[in-house]
Nucleic acid binder design. Structure first.
Lengths: 184, 184
DNA sequence: CTAGATTGTCTAGCAGTGCTAGGATCGACG
DNA sequence: CGTCGATCCTAGCACTGCTAGACAATCTAG
């Protein structure tokens, strides 16, 4: 399992290159600009190479999403450890703003990964666990449901912010209000 | 202004037919299934006819979104008048669940309508006004910001629900928790 | 009632999309 | 040197949104 020969390592490397490049293209010009031809050009291979690594374009987006989820979990932990629920909220929205394409890949684009089942649960549970850990100290009874409510509220702010549907000047105030609602 | 001759009335009628059909197709098979060819087929005209009514496909989606926003405003008012903030929240999420394609057209699909400016403000302000009217009685100071927080929370639940990322069994509990957070 | 202009509609096509079948190329090995 | 196998690319399919230009229907004027 451990020892991969040169070829296998090269393959893995190239798969990672594809995901990395897709992410860069998406962050630069949006997901609509990430087409198989452009992506293939950017990694300097032809389109079929993409399909030898991923089942389809959707799978590439999913790979970017999974990477992003892992990053998000780390960011959330740091924010929480630094300044509790407020730090958590700031970290969440900060990540969504700093990496809109990745956030879209995780949450707003149609994905083939099912969330509730056995598919790719570890990294999601990790992220949800961070949220739960932040909310738990302030929950009187059902912390899990409260976490879902809190998460939804953050997600709503993230997406509505992204589309400029909330007043930008009140951004921080909205976060504080939300946190205060939960902490009581 | 008032008197439109037969032709102009027929044109208006057909424009409405296009929007109505687009909405039906979207609700039936999702927006990805709403292509210019299928839509043209469904209304029994050729594709160019669509473009004599709308600048592009995006404009058709926008038209569906505007119709939906008006409907949503009505539904929100009814919910609020029937049972206050809880009725408002139920109505909002109920509409999003009952008309997922329309809700997507309004909020999650990329739209060419700018929200903060003079473009199509009436109907949006109407909707936001309903939310504001529901939140205001429970706000101690800045009702508008609190409304944005509340709206974001609803929107988050709507979208995360749609993608089965929240436990379905706790749906009602999440709404109640959210409302209780705001009402104090 | 006819000739001309205007309006309406369609056919056919472009450039781009995701995706794939088949052949070319290149390496390792006998 | 020749063969085999993996790797990769060219070329193409069916689809997308969108549009130019030909055609048909309707209205207007004489």
């Amino acid at each position: 399992m451990e020892s991969l020969n040169r070829r296998e390592r090269a393959r893995l490397e190239r798969g990672a290159l594809i995901v990395r490049t897709a992410r860069e293209l998406a962050e630069a010009d949006g997901w609509d600009a990430v087409t198989t031809r452009r992506l293939a050009d950017a990694v300097e291979y032809s389109q079929p190479v993409l399909y030898s690594h991923f089942k389809n374009m959707q799978a590439i987006v999913t790979a970017v999403a999974l990477d992003g989820m892992a990053e998000l979990a780390v960011v959330l932990r740091e924010g929480r450890e630094a300044s509790g629920l407020m730090g958590l909220a700031e970290a969440y929205l900060g990540y969504a703003e700093a990496h809109p394409a990745v956030y879209a890949a995780i949450f707003t684009r149609r994905t083939d990964l099912v969330f509730g089942s056995a598919e790719s649960p570890e990294v999601l549970k990790l992220t949800f666990g961070e949220l739960l850990a932040g909310v738990e100290p302030h929950a009187t009874d059902d912390a899990e449901t409260l976490t879902e409510v809190f998460w939804s509220a953050l997600h709503g702010q993230a997406t509505l912010n992204q589309e400029s549907r909330l007043r930008p000047a009140q951004r921080t105030e909205r976060i504080e209000r939300l946190v205060r609602l939960v902490t009581g």
